[in-house]
Design a protein around this nucleic acid. Structure first.
Lengths: 99, 99
DNA sequence: TTAATATATTACTATATTGCAATAATACTA
DNA sequence: TAGTATTATTGCAATATAGTAATATATTAA
């Protein structure tokens, strides 16, 4: 594997490798949501949520549109959904085997 | 998604989200390898490589066995291969669309 | 036992990330 | 325009991660 691909892939992975960010992606899988609703769903503080959204927007994972005072975020990179499905499968399998 | 799954998944993702670690996994996809050969293939320093191997071993991604003076590492968690395949697909698609 | 090879660990510095509080900016509404 | 709701940004302290050099450990061979 070439170094550039490794760097770039690591970058994408880091961009989602955070509990709050994963939960945000999970929420947005169904439909776009505004920041306030995401904050409410997660029970996290507004500033933190906004920061995590921004991180993912910068990496091209999310995109957003403003509608009046609200900003709606959506998943821009549908591929991350597949990636995360693999991760969750893995984690669930691991949990089962530990019983 | 429950918080525990998010925490655990983020942990796994963080464990692979590093260029050297990705390259190690890529090497081990084909076959198990000893540390020296991995160091040689990657052109990284011995200490760094050993550290990265250890990180992934602790997270259950890799496993190893000693054979004399050498230690052979292998992928313990075959699922990460699928996860990374998704990531690479994504990165390649992205590269193409930027052309 | 000594030397050489292979791998792991430690201590340290530098850098990055996280979470927080406060505040700024934006866009509605009265 | 003033006030309010919504979202973004900034500055900071705490923590985590990365990279390095030096050293330790384990195994084999002489």
């Amino acid at each position: 594997m070439d170094r550039d691909l490794a760097e770039h892939s690591a970058d994408i992975l880091k961009a989602v490798a955070h509990p709050i960010r994963l939960q945000i992606i999970e929420l947005l899988k169904k439909e776009e949501m505004c920041v306030g609703d995401i904050v409410h769903e997660l029970g996290e503080k507004q500033a933190i949520t906004s920061q995590q959204l921004n991180i993912m927007k910068n990496k091209g994972i999310l995109a957003c549109r403003r509608e009046g005072a609200k900003v709606f975020y959506r998943i821009e990179n549908k591929n991350v959904i597949k990636v995360l499905a693999c991760v969750y499968d893995h984690c669930k399998a691991e949990t089962r085997s530990k019983k």
